[in-house]
Amino acid sequence: MWAKSLDISRRFAAAAALAALAVTASPALAQLKSVEIMAPANPGGGYDQHARAMQQVMQELNLATGVQVVNVPGAGGTIGLSQFVTGKKRGNGLMITGLGMIGATLINKSPVSLEQVTPLARLTGEYQPIIVSAESPLKTMDDLVAKFKADPGSVSWGGFAVGSPDHILYALIVKAVGGDVSKMNYIAAGAGGEMLAAVMGGHITVVTGGYNEFAAQLKEGKLRALAISSPERLPGIDVPTLKEQGVDVELVNWRAVVASGDIKQADLKTLDGAMGKMVASPQWKAIAAERGWVDSYLPAKDFAGFLQDEQTRIKSVLDELGLLKK
């Protein structure tokens, strides 16, 4: 099992951390008591699914007892975050977070931010396809870019919310092809089903989201993927990357788990080890495969660095979109 997890993470830091843990952790220490995982969203969404998958796997692996999930929805996770930062922790408080939360805290001018929590582990990522209806005349990214350049307003870019990963991906694409980001006609097209129906019915030019949200419709030929935001082609998914088509953009909508800001080093170490065991387990991999989550595990230390960089990147994109004006 250890060797397997090393393969996946392919990172020396992880190897060191896990090896150290394997030596020092006694069985009693390894089992956490009453872990409460906050999903800062409604049941059913990505944050919630991650929280419940963690709950299931941590219990099955006996990594923890009494794992509970609480949903605190609102404002793209900002409300959950503020409760997580300011509230009193009962037991081992964890919270699911992700790329979307960075944008949400900035746009909502949230008084709390991800600086106030302790990064624990990046868990998974989803690459985002650029989707059009099967009847759309657009066949490649070139077609889309040409349409945008001819008449920027004529391309309606549908996504979840303003400042969401969807919005950011579009902005990165438009920037990469030398377009004017401020002329982008972004439509906050609502949640999953509504957005899907809007593109299928031809009401919106392009939409995006997690690949899995569109997998069934793509398979049935009702939708077409022009490109995907991964660095290279994904196994089993016959969609060219943005880069292949000359658009130098990569984006992964990652999901991660964080611990409270004042966590003790020893506890962090135990949790870090538990997360490593969890993501390496066959149970976790099975769930990830079903949901189309790509393993992008980073242990606490690496994730902290990544989070810093990502915050800087998102902030500059949102700034350029004019979304951070006072």
Binding site: P43, G44, G45, L196, A197, N212, Q217, K222, E290, R291
Partner: peptide, 23 residues
């Protein structure tokens, strides 16, 4: 179509995926 149009439908969709099914 596999379109979830309510919160409950969205969870049922997740449940389908849990069993490896695509509506």
């Amino acid at each position: 179509l596999g379109l979830p149009t309510s919160a409950t439908a969205a969870i049922m969709l997740a449940a389908f995926q849990q069993y490896g099914l695509q509506p």
